[in-house]
């Protein structure tokens, strides 16, 4: 009983290991593969991203003639961002979008 007392006190006084997530944000590490974003002005319409995508998640928007990513299919591998010659597609650090419907 006496032996565990210092441990009990130390555990009572220490901070918890978890964070209160929705109120307290945790920044992912640099180079995190989050939601891919497309800058439409930079796109040169070479369609390398469509060839590189392993999930066939990228299609062409009929009106703007630029690639759009279907996030329901995307596996966030980052092959499209690697293949893009003008860096029009980049992987952002955003991972808090999965609750929103987007096509």
């Amino acid at each position: 009983m006496v032996k565990i007392l210092p441990k009990v006190l130390a555990n009572l006084l220490r901070k918890p290991f978890t964070v209160k997530y929705p109120y307290e944000k945790v920044e992912p590490a640099d180079g995190y593969r989050g939601k891919p974003s497309i800058t439409k002005e930079k796109c040169i319409r070479c369609w390398q991203c469509i060839r590189a995508c392993p999930d066939r998640a990228i299609s062409v928007d009929k009106e703007t003639k630029t690639p759009v990513i279907w996030l329901g299919r995307c596996t966030f591998c980052g092959e499209c961002a690697e293949a893009c010659p003008t860096k029009a597609i980049v992987m952002t650090k955003n991972f808090e979008f999965l609750d929103q419907y987007e096509k």
Partner: peptide, 28 residues
Amino acid sequence: REHVMDMREIISGGRVHSATNTIGGVRR
């Protein structure tokens, strides 16, 4: 285990799926 997951995130950019390997080497 969270320490390892953080290390994997730093190295590969994803906590679980690494997507680091590619044919002929690694991507990151």
